[in-house]
Amino acid sequence: NQASVVANQLIPINTALTLVMMRSEVVTPVGIPAEDIPRLVGMQVNRAVPLGTTLMPDMVKGYA
């Protein structure tokens, strides 16, 4: 099963992502693939992302 990117903490709206904010986990539904974590660093979320939430492509500005 493919691992997805999951929020390791509450990520406030418009926050630029850092490695410490994300972890990989096998979840359903599948979100952004864990191998894209390096690409996500520095990108901003367009909404608040609660701890444990799977990051979906539409949550990250410029990802989709």
Rank of each mutant, 00 (worst) to 15 (best):
N1L: 11
N1C: 14
Q2K: 02
Q2V: 11
Q2D: 15
A3R: 02
A3C: 15
A3M: 13
A3G: 11
A3T: 14
A3N: 12
S4L: 01
S4G: 15
S4T: 10
V5T: 15
V5E: 00
V6W: 04
A7M: 08
A7E: 00
A7D: 00
A7T: 07
N8T: 13
N8D: 14
N8W: 13
N8R: 14
Q9I: 15
Q9E: 11
Q9A: 04
Q9N: 08
Q9S: 12
L10C: 10
L10E: 09
L10R: 06
L10W: 08
L10P: 08
L10D: 12
I11K: 00
I11A: 01
I11M: 12
P12N: 05
P12L: 07
P12M: 12
I13M: 08
I13E: 08
N14C: 07
N14D: 13
N14G: 10
N14Q: 04
N14M: 04
N14K: 04
N14I: 03
T15I: 06
T15Y: 10
T15G: 05
T15Q: 06
T15E: 05
A16Q: 04
A16V: 05
A16H: 08
A16R: 04
L17N: 00
L17Q: 00
L17V: 07
T18R: 08
T18Y: 03
T18P: 01
L19W: 07
L19H: 08
L19Q: 04
L19G: 02
V20Y: 12
V20T: 12
V20S: 07
M21V: 04
M21D: 03
M21K: 04
M21W: 04
M22A: 01
M22E: 00
M22W: 02
M22L: 09
R23P: 00
S24N: 13
S24Y: 07
S24G: 11
S24I: 08
S24E: 12
S24K: 07
E25S: 08
E25Y: 08
E25D: 14
E25P: 01
V26I: 13
V26F: 04
T28Y: 04
T28R: 01
T28Q: 07
T28V: 11
P29E: 14
P29Q: 13
P29D: 15
P29T: 13
P29A: 11
P29I: 14
V30W: 07
V30A: 09
V30M: 09
V30N: 08
V30L: 09
G31D: 01
I32K: 01
I32E: 00
I32W: 02
I32H: 01
P33W: 11
P33K: 06
P33Y: 12
P33H: 12
P33D: 10
P33M: 10
P33I: 11
A34H: 11
A34N: 10
A34T: 09
A34Q: 14
E35K: 03
E35A: 07
E35R: 03
E35P: 12
D36W: 05
I37N: 03
I37H: 04
I37L: 13
I37M: 13
P38E: 08
P38Y: 10
P38A: 13
P38G: 05
P38S: 10
P38T: 04
R39Y: 13
R39S: 04
R39P: 03
L40D: 00
L40N: 01
L40M: 12
L40G: 00
L40W: 02
L40R: 00
V41N: 03
V41M: 09
V41L: 12
V41R: 07
V41F: 10
G42N: 09
G42V: 02
G42F: 07
M43Y: 14
Q44H: 05
Q44Y: 13
Q44F: 14
V45H: 00
V45G: 01
N46K: 07
N46Q: 12
N46C: 14
N46V: 12
N46T: 10
N46M: 13
N46S: 13
R47P: 02
R47M: 11
R47H: 06
A48D: 15
A48K: 07
A48S: 06
A48P: 05
A48F: 07
A48Y: 12
A48G: 10
V49Q: 03
V49P: 01
V49W: 02
V49N: 01
V49H: 02
V49C: 04
P50H: 09
P50V: 15
P50E: 15
P50A: 15
L51Y: 12
L51T: 14
L51R: 07
L51M: 15
L51G: 09
L51A: 12
G52T: 13
G52N: 10
G52C: 04
G52Y: 09
G52A: 15
G52D: 11
T53G: 11
T53A: 10
T54C: 02
T54A: 14
T54F: 10
L55E: 00
L55I: 11
L55W: 01
M56K: 09
M56S: 08
M56P: 01
P57L: 06
P57M: 09
D58Q: 08
D58N: 06
D58A: 10
D58E: 08
M59G: 06
V60Q: 01
V60E: 01
V60D: 00
K61C: 12
K61S: 11
K61D: 04
K61I: 07
G62R: 07
G62F: 08
G62S: 09
G62V: 04
G62K: 08
G62Y: 11
Y63R: 02
Y63F: 15
A64F: 02
A64H: 13
A64S: 14
A64R: 04
